[in-house]
């Protein structure tokens, strides 16, 4: 057989294999999500059916209606949970970003004693599983009266996110040439102006990606929130999912409907800053 033909066939087969692998991988990633969305729109009978029904016979908004309905009709305080989640996630993200920027910039630009040790220490905090901290946190929060408050959860999420935002933002500032700030200083800027007018806009993509990660971590966190919140006034949406479980039954349809509501803001936010996120994650590669 002609050697060129052989190579061409091989290249096509490889391409086909690649597509099949990709399809399988994407299925594994996407099917649970799609299943959740699907379940939120169909009757419980169909959700519980064995063998599973893949193609729905009937789609309706019953679970959503029930979820927003009153007490006794399967309703949960969705709006209150949503507001709690929003307040806690946005506040903790903003604080984590501010601290992350200050810390990341310091690590990227300045030399100081114990820099390496502090940095490793920060990273090590990420190695501790959050759940392992739940009991000590519970005790501390209980003693300080921060149980079941927004502030308590905000503090926990800031602590969780700061090491990560520092690490990520440090990487981005490292890639901003030092000369940019120097040029700005020579052009008449103070140190502060040089940062805000030149270095920050250049590293904006990195800060945005750190922000997204911090927001999603807070938005989706369940383990600690379930320990530290009690009432409707502080429960976040992931904790709210538990409202659908009772002693003998689990309302899967309602749970899926709430889960869909949880996914939507995260999805919108990710789409909005998608450009920044990708630019941020591949910063070194796209630098002109």
């Amino acid at each position: 057989m002609d050697i060129n033909l052989r190579h061409r066939i091989r290249a096509r087969l490889l391409k086909a294999a690649q597509m099949v692998t990709l399809f399988i991988a994407m299925s594994i990633i996407c099917i649970p999500g799609l299943w959740v969305v699907l379940n939120s729109f169909r009757p419980t009978v169909e959700i519980m059916a064995k063998p599973p029904v893949w193609i729905p016979n009937e789609l309706n908004l019953d679970h959503y209606r029930a979820m927003f309905g009153g007490v006794g009709q399967g309703g949960v305080p969705v709006l209150q949970y949503f507001t709690n989640s929003l307040i806690i996630s946005i506040t903790s993200t903003l604080i984590a970003i501010l601290v992350g920027m200050a810390g990341g910039y310091a690590f990227a630009r300045y030399r100081f004693k114990g820099k390496g040790a502090i940095f490793i220490g920060l990273m090590l905090t990420r190695a501790v599983p959050g759940v392992a901290l739940s009991l000590p946190l519970f005790i501390v929060m209980a003693r300080t009266g921060l149980i079941d408050t927004h502030i308590g959860l905000i503090i926990v999420y800031v602590a969780m996110n700061v090491p990560f935002t520092i690490w990520l933002i440090d990487g981005f500032f490292r890639q901003v040439p030092r000369e940019l700030a120097e040029a700005a200083e020579i052009d008449g800027c103070t140190r502060w102006q040089a940062f805000w007018k030149v270095e920050f806009p250049v590293a904006r993509a990195g800060v945005a990606s750190a922000g997204i990660f911090a927001f999603l971590t807070s938005w989706n966190e369940y383990a600690l929130a379930s320990q530290l919140t009690r009432s409707t006034f502080s429960k976040t949406m992931p904790v709210g999912l538990r409202d659908f479980t009772s002693e003998f039954t689990i309302n899967w349809g309602g749970m899926c409907a709430l889960a869909v509501l949880m996914i939507i803001p995260a999805l919108i936010l990710t789409f909005l800053v998608q450009k920044h996120l990708i630019a941020g994650l591949t910063f070194g590669g796209v630098k002109g």
């Binding site: 000369e179 120097e182 040029a183 200083e185 008449g188 806009p201 904006r204």
Partner: peptide, 20 residues
């Protein structure tokens, strides 16, 4: 004096243009 008060200007090796 900080650079901004010296009335100098400087051209850097890697140009240091503001990319944004």
């Amino acid at each position: 004096l900080p650079p901004r008060d010296r009335n100098i200007s400087m051209v850097f090796q890697n140009y240091a243009l503001y990319p944004h």
